[in-house]
Simulated scan of single mutants.
Amino acid sequence: MSKTTAISFDEVRRKRGFRVLAVIAVLIVAAFIISVNTGYIRLTPLELLHTLLGRGTDKQELILFDFRLPRIVISILIGAGLAVSGAVMQGVFRNDLADPGILGINAGAGLMVMLLISFYPATSAAPVFMLPLVAFVGAACTAAMIYALAYKRHQGISPIRLLLTGVAVAAGMSAAMIVLTLRLDPDKYQFVATWLAGSIWGTSWKFVLSLLPWILILLPYVIYKARVMNVLNLGDQTATGLGAAVTKEQFRLLGAAVGLAAASVAVSGGIGFVGLIGPHLARRLVGPKHQLMLPASALLGSLLVLTADTIGRWILQPSEIPTGIVVAVIGAPYFLYLLARTKS
């Protein structure tokens, strides 16, 4: 293949990738409109427009601005955060099965959030802006534990050993959470049960503000490191030969991935499989280069969580199914399919 042909092929692939991103963005807008109008009390498109323009009734403004919009924004943010976190972990570990939920990162973050909230008389009294930071501490400690247990000298980290270690650590963290619930009052027990089911429990604008800085800082940073991730995917020896500081870059990227997952978990509960499905679909749609794959993962993660949350609120009205359960119905079969295809 000539150099001109290679450049032409890359340009075609890039244009196709941008078209795919545009289509996913349009789907998110459509899901946003449907989600805004989903609930026990419906708003017609005209009522929705009037309310957005400030001409709705007090009841319509309460439903839209105080209940539905914060939850929709949080769904979009945590979907992007979890999906990009999974994409980074898959790239750094070179393991297609890596996901913050499967590897126990989410469970570690959730355990710390639960410990923080248990010190307050009511879950609403907990310092909202401290939740992502506390979750990050728990997630970082869990990630360090998994790395230490899965690493073997002269062998590194094999994909299956990493996966099994993560599953075991996640099970241990979940068991610790269940044991701690025995000492909780009924309100806090209900919160833990809701968290474990993966229900988006932080549904006010203060939770949006607590999550937003983590997404706005870490997401652009990871996308900025897309070229570095492309080099790391070539293998440690090749990356070192090309001048990359492999260990430093791996720890920086893992820190960003853990931060994204922890902040998302702090307001969303134990939603799994988003970090697994998003990157895999993105890779199929736009290719393996991280310049397009990371933004595609973020958009697909947002679309997945927003759609799952909308389905969960709609299917059994006026009751609702936790978002994590809807995502698990989609993600569990896909995970088993990927596990069956894994050769090592």
Rank of each mutant, 00 (worst) to 15 (best):
F9N: 15
L103F: 09
L48I: 04
A266R: 00
F119S: 11
T5C: 12
T57G: 10
L211H: 10
L64M: 06
E61F: 05
D236A: 06
A144F: 07
Y120R: 00
S75E: 12
G272K: 07
G156D: 03
M177P: 05
A266N: 10
L292P: 12
S210A: 15
V137L: 01
A144D: 10
V267P: 03
K206M: 11
G243K: 02
A126L: 04
G235Q: 03
T38F: 05
I74N: 10
L242Y: 02
L82W: 02
Q190V: 12
A171P: 05
T51R: 06
V169D: 06
S302N: 02
H50P: 03
T342D: 14
G312H: 07
I105A: 08
G312C: 09
L232K: 10
G156N: 00
P322R: 04
A143Y: 07
A266V: 04
S264E: 01
N37H: 13
E320Y: 08
Y334G: 05
H154L: 13
T4Q: 14
I74W: 01
N106F: 01
V267N: 01
F136L: 13
L97K: 08
T44H: 01
A328C: 10
L21N: 03
A340K: 14
L285N: 03
F67S: 13
L232S: 08
A139M: 05
A148K: 11
Q190K: 11
T238R: 09
R13P: 13
K152Q: 15
V274F: 00
T5N: 12
A109M: 03
A22H: 11
G108L: 00
A122S: 15
P100Q: 04
F67G: 04
L116E: 11
I117K: 06
G56M: 09
V134K: 06
G110P: 01
Q317I: 14
I33P: 03
L211I: 07
I117F: 05
G138V: 04
T203A: 02
S8H: 09
P295Y: 07
A30Q: 12
N230R: 08
D187P: 04
A226G: 01
A80P: 10
R252P: 04
